[in-house]
Design a binder for these strands. Structure first.
Lengths: 189, 189
DNA sequence: GTCTATAAGATGATAGAC
DNA sequence: GTCTATCATCTTATAGAC
């Protein structure tokens, strides 16, 4: 495995656990066993490194969503698998969603990273809107108003559930809240 | 107004906009117009300063909830006013909920501050549980399961809506998502 | 209570040898 | 690609004068 990829793996974990401000080249150097200068050789600046982490994760997640579309034609099952992706991102309850974490650092974030965060949020709302609209058309979901509004509320709910779950180190809390959000938003009046 | 209180005001704003890791004694010194050493005279360590900010805000918010109970006996109106408190915390779309922001810094937070964060979350879930239970008893709300579960989902949803809204600088987004969460969670099956 | 001065350490980043 | 060495700057925090 290439050094650049190992650096991205380590940086991804550091951002998810500590955030943009609280991780450093020294952390990566220690975890990988090479000097700080060597890390800079692969990613010259922290802005470029974090942008690369964000862009890679976004692509990986988009691939996973496409896989869900292939494997789970049923909207309800597709949505349940989507919840599982979020729960997996929590790891043992000590990782925040990469983009939720970066969002909390919005004010100090390099512009290119912020663009990836907003792009990821837009990706998720668009995908969820499609699933929810298909579910209503199939008679599986019931809700008022446009699908986009329900999708936005569901996505925000999942981000908040991850934020609180990680503060508590409580994965079952996330699972319970996520299920209730889906239940309330897709079987309402 | 006492210097200590002005320091707390400035620190509160800095935590809500930049987070625990990204604010410094130098920021407070510049905003207040006194030297860093003078800030340390009032709050010896960053841990103690942040703990004081967190404890004060928690008390103020608890007072506001008690005021809502006095002024709005109707559960639906009480809940709508609760949403307004969250929206006000967003300011112009550039402030995160103080505790949501600190929650994102969980891993690097002093233990005393983390305790305040978890205490605030518990406060909010308990209060919301009471409002929701009263609303169901009064025939205003309809939902399955225990009130505590619905309260947890609503609170998480509001935190997530604030996180995403601030990243976008979009207050109307928060208002729309908050209303939909309340609608779905309190008028469901 | 506020100041000047200072400390010890971390930060992101660069130059240049191997 | 990795290293040593170095840089300017920032961080939290303290000592002691006024």
């Amino acid at each position: 495995m290439a050094t650049a990829d190992r650096i991205l793996d380590i940086a991804e974990n550091l951002v998810q656990t500590r955030g943009y401000e609280a991780f450093s080249y020294a952390d990566i150097s220690a975890a990988l066993g090479i000097r700080k200068a060597s890390v800079h050789h692969h990613f010259a600046t922290k802005a470029e490194l974090t942008r690369a982490v964000a862009a890679r994760y976004r692509g990986v997640f988009a691939d996973r969503l496409r896989a869900l579309e292939r494997e789970f034609p049923d909207p309800t099952r597709r949505l349940m698998r989507y919840l599982r992706l979020f729960q997996e991102a929590l790891h043992d309850g000590d990782h925040m969603c990469l983009y939720g974490m970066l969002a909390s650092d919005t004010q100090t974030l390099p512009a290119a990273v912020r663009d990836e965060v907003l792009g990821f949020f837009a990706d998720q709302e668009k995908w969820l809107t499609g699933v929810i609209a298909a579910g209503r058309a199939a008679g599986e979901f019931r809700f008022d108003g446009k699908p986009a509004g329900t999708a936005a509320a569901l996505f925000a709910g999942l981000e908040g559930a991850m934020l609180v779950a990680r503060a508590r180190g409580d994965v079952p809390y996330f699972a319970a809240v996520a299920l209730r959000l889906v239940g309330a938003l897709t079987s309402g009046g």
